[in-house]
Simulated assay, not measured.
Amino acid sequence: MAEAFAHIHGGEHVEAFSAGSKPSGVINPKAIRFMSELGYDLTTHTSKSLDDIEGEFDAVITMGCGDDCPWIPAKHREDWGLPDPKHMDDDGYRSVRDDISSRVKSLLAALR
């Protein structure tokens, strides 16, 4: 969802990638459903491994993996430590989704 919000809020001026240390290979159907509520088609995304991501980045955001996160070169780093909404009810999922949206907006503003 963070990659999607980077595209939504940053437009063509932002190149964003998301990846996981243990990708499932599929996009969570709940993520697809809750992003579609905002008019975003998450089915165009793929589940990627961190091994598929190369380069040095302006920002790297981790989602609560702490010291277990692999090192990825970046000028700016943050760990948002958000709960995984995978097993949350609808309201909980929307809350995490909206928190990610807000954080992405703030990050993009800070990087400009």
Rank of each mutant, 00 (worst) to 15 (best):
F57I: 10
S21E: 11
R112N: 12
Y93K: 03
D98E: 03
E37Q: 05
D79W: 06
G25H: 02
D99E: 15
V14M: 03
M88T: 04
D52A: 15
I27Y: 08
L108Q: 06
S21C: 11
G11F: 13
D89S: 09
A4D: 00
D79L: 10
D89V: 14
L107E: 02
T43V: 08
R33E: 14
E56W: 01
I32T: 04
I53Y: 06
A109W: 01
A19N: 01
M1W: 02
Y40L: 05
G92L: 06
W80G: 03
H7W: 13
A2G: 15
T46L: 09
F5S: 13
T46K: 15
A109I: 02
R33H: 12
V104R: 06
D51V: 03
E15G: 03
D79H: 09
G92W: 04
D91F: 05
D58C: 08
A110E: 09
L42M: 14
E54P: 01
K22L: 07
S101G: 14
V26W: 03
A16R: 01
L82M: 06
N28M: 13
I61T: 04
S95A: 14
P23Q: 07
A4I: 08
I61W: 05
A110S: 14
G55W: 08
S49R: 10
A74E: 02
D89W: 07
F57E: 09
H13A: 15
H87A: 02
K22E: 15
P29W: 07
A4F: 00
G25T: 07
D58S: 13
P73R: 14
H45R: 12
N28Q: 14
P85N: 02
K86E: 09
K48D: 10
H45I: 10
I61C: 10
P73G: 13
P29N: 08
E12P: 10
H7F: 13
A2Q: 07
M63V: 11
A59L: 08
A31G: 04
Y40P: 02
